[in-house]
Design a protein around this nucleic acid. Structure first.
Length: 337
DNA sequence: AGTCCACTGGAACTTGAGGAAT
DNA sequence: ATTCCTCAAGTTCCAGTGGACT
């Protein structure tokens, strides 16, 4: 790829959060549990469906992909991945999981047809379906259809464990056998370990010290993605400056850059109404619902109903953009820290 | 300890866009 | 061209709950 000798970076791909490492740090029991639930597939039996949940940057998606790759190395199996943040509807979700795309974007193919095509695809080869950001799915039929499919295993990924709350009882009972697996935030030491392994494969080894990795890990606050982005940003910046080693100053800057970048990217996901709520909380600090909604209506012409705003806020809370404390009348909302 | 009511979240209903059927 | 159907997004309605206040 690059014929020049790089001063710091040896393999940039290794430093991205999407890179799938060949072993996962500190998630052994979770790995085993996922593998155990999929294992029946190797004996032609239906696997146990799963919900993996936990805060951002705790390795949920990576681990799911990791275990599925592991399974594929042991048997003939396929996998399908769909992220429901950008594909929310029944049509889009099934369409995304097909590998032969139809004429883009929509050629009048009905949702039923797309599901039928997916069924055909899955019929002859056992398939693990990874449904990322499953809490974005509003239509409970999707989960029903997915859980009904033969010859497939289902891994759902979400931020909180209560994603089925709004589904109807038929779907809930269908999903009642789903095994829930909790991914907790990483400790500082665990993030250091993750960063060390990436350094080993992606960087010239002595370009960044253990102590510096620890500083990055501390700032990442349990979110491995933030840690990895900080390290990559620091490495790229040093490279650009032609330095042999990453300096503390660059580390400090990169941590800031990457933290604000994550914040911005989660803010970019908010719609206009959610942004208004965000700004109100930013300005006023901790507030109760009534006051938030009142200010919101004052600031915006085409205001949505209170119920809708509350739904939006539930989402913001699941994505850790805002926080709440107390219950009922004493409940107060604020920006997440 | 009793009443009040702000807040929550489930459920049914409405709206509007866009494809399918005739 | 029109009517019908499906789907997503939002609204209206409402019962339950437990803090706040007396």
């Amino acid at each position: 790829m690059n014929s020049f000798r790089n001063s710091v970076i040896e393999d940039a791909r290794v430093l991205t959060a999407d890179y799938l490492p060949n072993e996962m740090v500190a998630r052994d029991s979770e790995r085993q549990e996922i593998a155990r639930n999929l294992r029946p597939m190797t004996e032609d039996q239906p696997p146990i469906d799963m919900l993996i949940y936990g805060p951002p940057g705790t390795g949920k998606t990576s681990m799911a992909r990791y275990v599925v790759e592991e399974l594929k190395s042991k048997m003939f199996a396929n996998s399908a991945y769909v992220n429901c943040f950008s594909h929310k509807s029944k049509f889009e979700i099934f369409y995304e999981m097909l590998d032969k795309k139809l004429t883009v974007p929509r050629d009048g193919t009905s949702t039923e047809k797309v599901i039928q095509l997916f069924r055909e695809k899955v019929r002859d080869s056992p398939t693990v379906i990874i449904v990322d950001e499953a809490d974005q799915v509003v239509d409970d039929e999707v989960m029903f259809e997915l859980s009904k499919l033969n010859n497939t295993g289902l891994i759902m990924i979400a931020n909180d464990s209560n994603v089925f709350g709004h589904f109807d009882s038929r779907v809930r009972s269908r999903l009642s056998g789903v095994r829930k697996i909790h991914f907790r935030s990483y400790s500082v030491d665990q993030i250091v370990e993750i960063l060390k392994r990436r350094r080993e494969h992606g960087l010239r080894t002595d370009s960044v010290s253990d102590k510096q990795l620890k500083a990055i890990a501390k700032a990442a606050d349990g979110d491995a993605r933030v840690g990895l982005n900080s390290l990559r940003t620091a490495a790229q910046e040093s490279e650009k400056q032609g330095n042999e080693n990453i300096t503390d100053k660059i580390i400090e800057q990169s941590v800031e850059v990457s933290k604000s970048r994550t914040r911005i990217s989660s803010l970019e996901r908010l719609n206009k109404h959610q942004k208004t709520v965000y700004e109100i909380l930013e300005e006023n600090g901790r507030m109760k619902m009534g006051n938030i909604y009142q200010s919101y209506c004052e600031q915006i012409d085409d205001n949505k109903s209170k119920r809708t705003i509350r739904r939006y806020m539930n989402k913001m809370e699941a994505y850790e953009v805002i926080d709440s404390e107390g219950a009922k009348k004493a409940k107060r909302y604020a920006l997440a820290d």
